[in-house]
Amino acid sequence: MVTKSNVGMDVDLGGIAMRNPVNTASGTFGNGRQFEGFYDVGSTLGAITCKGVAAEPWKGNPVPRIAELGGSAILNSVGLQNPGVKEFVRQYGTYLQGLRDKGCAVICQVAGHSVEEYVRAMDLFEELAPFASGFEINISCPNIAAGGAAMGATPQSAAGVMRAVRGHTKRPVVVKMAPRDVAEIGRALESEGADALALINTIPGMSIDVRTRRSKVCRPTAGVSGPAIHAIAVRMVWECAQAVGIPICGIGGISTVDDAAEMILAGATAVSVGTANLYDPTVAARIVRGLEQWASEQGVSHVRELIGAFEC
């Protein structure tokens, strides 16, 4: 029998108030609406993070964009296909405002090829997206030729993007980080005014069809995600949490309640479910319920007591 627990589950992701720690990873949850047939997104999740959107439309990469790797991992090279901020707001604004009204935070992800493009997208969002609880700056996409992961590759370049966008919004800014040098880059982002960090993005990888000698996706290298990367992601969240004072959203291979709980113990304030949404579309809703159960079993009165409660 399931008894209703009295554990507090609300968390604060750098000024983004979440009713529970469960968020969704950008690019793996559509913009929420695609999941309404599976469960009531707005009254279930703590937050959703929308697909990365740039100032102008981006076409994205050619086919094939995804491959099953076996070993509980997939490879993707979508290349941030998006309709641009204006069209995104036209298509999803009303729906996303509805999520806010139901108590679910909405994080809009900002993409760009250059510092100027991030700023332009940020300005458009500021003007057109009153429904956004906060923004996530994507400086870690491995699947585009310019910008993306290149912008997040060094503490200097990452800080440069953060410095540029900081003056353009008063709402909370999360930075989506690549799986590299997370302590050092995290500190640089914190010192430029980032309100929170989200990590990790996909891990750069390759997969070759040995019969055709071609990449299994449209580019030689692409992003690896799924349960296989979870242990790496937990380690990086832990390293980053040791280095910074701002909250972290833990991402990478979360497919069970225990995976999410592990992230919290490693130091994550919130967690984002990614690839698992694609093949198990109700998983994020189950993790919401399961985390509460776990916190209750741990004997705490609030889930916040478990953030970083890992005992070495």
Partner: peptide, 23 residues
């Protein structure tokens, strides 16, 4: 047919190029 990630429009992995140039 396309390789598919989700099957319900959530991942943009199953793009089809149209004559309009759009996916």
């Amino acid at each position: 047919e396309r390789m598919m990630g989700c099957g319900f429009g959530a991942c943009s992995c199953c793009n089809v190029e149209l004559v309009s140039g759009e996916y």
